[in-house]
Amino acid sequence: MEALIRILTSFGVTWPALIAQVVNFVLLLVLLHLFAYKPVMRMLDERSRRIRESMEQTELVKQQTAQAAEETKKRLAQASLEGQEILNRAAKTGEEMRQKTLQDAKEASEALVQKARSEIAAERDEAIDSVRREFADLTILAAEKVISRSLDKKAHQELIDRVLEEGESLKK
């Protein structure tokens, strides 16, 4: 022990310097603990936590995206199907409507034509009647003038009717 102390002293060990260095080191330990280890460890833990979290989140988002894409695809297919159906239905309705309109128009035009025809016929009959009457009167008048004699009313009428009949047959 004596020898050890002598050796240490010869190497320069002194109580004040030794105590100073111990204090120095403890001070460094405490300060580093406060200013380096704690914040750095916290930061490293925090960072690894964040990275883990974000990786998990990424995985989740990826899954969700895949799911959403699947959903979208399904919806799209369904929508396209529905759209096709609606189109088909619309085309059918359109066709039906066209047919109906065509039918209506046809009927209306036929009715119009019919009506016009009957009116024309009636008009013509009336016109023929009036012409015939006029013609009869004129004929009588002319006959009276030409013959200058009066026939008895009866013979007269017979004559007229004969003429008219001739006329009728002529016309026809």
Partner: peptide, 11 residues
């Protein structure tokens, strides 16, 4: 300085 290694060793 031998005091430093000795201090470290003691700690």
């Amino acid at each position: 300085d031998i005091n430093v290694p000795l201090a470290l060793a003691l700690i």
